[in-house]
């Protein structure tokens, strides 16, 4: 029983990270109807920023986190401006391929600069508390609480502020909303900044939890986070959070009770079943076909 509880705690930690990345996918999708396949690699860049800042600037945890988030957010906005914006009226798939290209560029550029895996120094003194056979580390608590805070802030922004209303309005209709005086380019940039910034934060936290980082780490985690976004219902912020926790729980539980090599197999099979049962994700609504 306690074993299961311990695993659930691990799932909560991994799920927080997945959810943070999934949010980036979902936000960009919601506003541009475009899958930003470079997002997983921006997550990786977040981890590398964390490494650079911690090693060369010797900053402590909080400034490292903030600077990494800022750096990744700037990069995200830059990518949007340079690579995606010219394609806003092009066929949708060209934007997706561009995103794949940007992702490959980020991976290989990082690889060219740092051919070997790097090790992130310990930024927080990690203490572990034991309750019977249940152990909780301060790192776990920080990851979970921080993710939750970030998600709550995001949820507040999207649902309660004027900017959030503008974001949702643009995702609803891209031709009329600009005529209402909503600064579309600014809102899209802001969406990219927030989405990729959260991905950067996820990168930092992942780097702290699993300190060995390499340029290709973003691929698999990125795709998995994308799956979380879809499972929750892509374009839906709350769905992304739920999707993250579901995938993490399934993965951790499979690894806990079966050989860990079955993890991906079971996770992806479940995903297929779920998509067959609910083709538009848990919180997604099927778009009514207009005929």
């Amino acid at each position: 029983m306690i074993y299961i509880f311990q695993q659930l705690l691990n799932a909560l930690q991994l799920g927080s990270i997945y959810a943070l990345i999934a949010l980036g996918y979902t936000m960009v999708y919601g506003i541009l109807a475009m899958i930003n396949f470079a997002h997983g690699d921006l997550f990786m860049i977040g981890a590398f920023f964390c490494f650079l800042i911690a090693v060369y600037l010797h900053l402590s945890f909080v400034p490292t986190l903030l600077l990494s988030m800022l750096g990744v957010a700037c990069l995200g906005v830059l990518i949007e401006r340079l690579a995606y914006k010219p394609l806003r009226n092009a066929p949708r798939v060209s934007a997706i391929i561009t995103a794949l290209g940007v992702g490959l560029f980020l991976e290989n550029f990082t690889l060219a600069l740092s051919p070997y895996p790097q090790h992130i120094p310990e930024l927080i003194t990690n203490t572990t508390w034991n309750f019977g056979s249940l152990s909780i580390s301060s790192l776990q608590i920080i990851v979970i609480v921080l993710s939750l805070v970030l998600m709550l802030v995001l949820d507040f922004i999207v649902h309660r502020t004027k900017t959030g209303i503008a974001m949702r309005a643009i995702s609803w209709d891209k031709t009329i909303v600009p005529l209402m005086g909503v600064p579309v380019n600014k809102i899209i940039s802001l969406t990219f900044a927030i989405g990729t910034g959260l991905g950067g934060a996820a990168g930092v936290m992942y780097g702290l939890a699993y300190p060995v980082i390499d340029p290709y780490m973003g691929i698999m985690i990125g795709w998995k986070a994308f799956i979380c976004a879809v499972v929750g219902g892509i374009g839906n912020v709350r769905g992304a959070m739920i999707g993250g926790f579901i995938l993490a729980t399934v993965e951790i539980m499979v690894a806990a009770f079966f050989p860990s090599t079955y993890r991906d197999f079971v996770a992806f099979s479940l995903l297929l079943v779920l998509l067959i049962v609910r083709p538009y994700g848990i919180l997604g609504k099927p778009q009514p076909q207009k005929v």
Partner: peptide
């Protein structure tokens, strides 16, 4: 078969998951 009902991004996920399942089956 799943392509009968789902389209676009969701079918992309189905094929993505299919690719991952093949790889992880072979690994096992």
């Amino acid at each position: 078969i799943p392509s009968f009902k789902t389209r676009g991004d969701y079918l992309a996920i189905v094929t993505l998951a299919f690719g991952m399942i093949v790889k992880s089956c072979l690994e096992n």
